[in-house]
C-alpha cells in the first residue's frame, strides 16, 4: 500500500476517534440530561462514520475489488441514531427530569409564557 493511501486512512481514523471521544466527553461533562443528549447523537455517530470510511478504503485497497459491506453499518447508524435519541428524550420528558435553571421554555413549567409567539 502506498504512503498517500495510508495517510488518508489514518486521517479518517483519527478524526473519527476524536469525534467519538468528544461525544463521550459531552455525555460525561454537561450538566443536565437534555444537554447530554446532544453529544452521543451527533458526534459519536459521525465518529463511527469516519472510521467506517477509513475501513472501506483500507479493505478496498488490501483485498480484491471494492468493499461496500461496511457502509451498511454507517447507514443503519445514521437512520437509528435520531430515532433512539428521540425516544430516550421522550421518556425523559415523560418523567420530567430535572433541567438546568437557565433553560428557556421548559414545557412542563410556564405554559403561557412564550407560547403565544409561535401558536
Amino acid at each position: 500500500m502506498n504512503i498517500y493511501l495510508e495517510v488518508t486512512i489514518s486521517l479518517f481514523l483519527l478524526l473519527g476517534g476524536v469525534f467519538a471521544l468528544i461525544g463521550s466527553l459531552g455525555l460525561a461533562r454537561l450538566q443536565d440530561f437534555f444537554m447530554r443528549l446532544h453529544g452521543p447523537t451527533k458526534a459519536t455517530t459521525l465518529g463511527v462514520g469516519g472510521m467506517i470510511i477509513g475501513s472501506i478504503i483500507f479493505f478496498s485497497a488490501t483485498e480484491a475489488g471494492l468493499s461496500f459491506h461496511e457502509l451498511l453499518i454507517a447507514l443503519f447508524l445514521f437512520i437509528t441514531a435520531p430515532v433512539s435519541a428521540h425516544i430516550v428524550g421522550k421518556a425523559a420528558l415523560h418523567r420530567q427530569i430535572a433541567c438546568e435553571e437557565r433553560t428557556r421554555n421548559i414545557p412542563w413549567q410556564r405554559q403561557s409564557d412564550n407560547s403565544d409567539s409561535t401558536s
Partner: peptide
C-alpha cells in the same frame, strides 16, 4: 446506547 456505538467502532 453510546457504549453500543463505541463498541461498534
Amino acid at each position: 446506547d453510546t457504549m453500543y456505538i463505541n463498541t461498534i467502532a
